[in-house]
Simulated assay, not measured.
Amino acid sequence: MAVKMIAVDMDGTFLNSHQDYNREKFSKLYQQMKQQDVRFVVASGNQYYQLKTFFPEIEQELSFVAENGAYVISEGKEIFSGEIPSDLIQEVLTILADFEEGHTILCGKNSAYVGENEPDSFIEHGSKYYHRLKKVSNLSEVKNDTLFKFALSFPVEQVDEVLERLAEVLGDKLVPVSSGHGDVDLIVPGIHKAHGLMKLQELWGIQNHEIAAFGDSGNDFEMLKHAGHSYVMSNGQPNVKVAAKEIILSNDEDGVLVKIEELLEN
Rank of each mutant, 00 (worst) to 15 (best):
H195E: 09
V38H: 13
R23P: 04
L15S: 06
L263S: 05
S178Y: 08
I79G: 00
M10D: 05
G205P: 07
E265M: 08
I89K: 15
A7L: 03
V256C: 05
F122I: 15
H195D: 04
V142Y: 12
K4F: 06
E168I: 05
P155K: 10
V240K: 01
H229P: 05
S111Q: 10
T13G: 11
S137I: 09
N117F: 10
D98R: 13
S17C: 06
L133H: 14
T104M: 00
Q60G: 00
S27Y: 07
I247H: 00
P238N: 14
H125P: 02
Q47L: 06
G236A: 15
E222R: 12
D145C: 07
S127G: 08
P155I: 05
Q201M: 14
S153G: 03
H18L: 14
Y21L: 03
K135E: 13
H195A: 08
M10S: 07
V177C: 09
I247E: 14
K135L: 14
D37P: 02
V159F: 08
D185I: 07
S111P: 00
D37M: 07
I211H: 13
F80I: 04
N22T: 08
V184K: 04
Y30E: 11
Q32L: 09
F99M: 02
Y30C: 09
G12R: 04
R165G: 11
V159S: 04
V136D: 08
A213P: 11
V169L: 13
V41G: 05
L106R: 02
A66C: 04
V136P: 13
K135H: 07
D98P: 00
V38E: 11
G228L: 07
K28M: 11
V3H: 04
Q35K: 15
Q32V: 08
S74G: 01
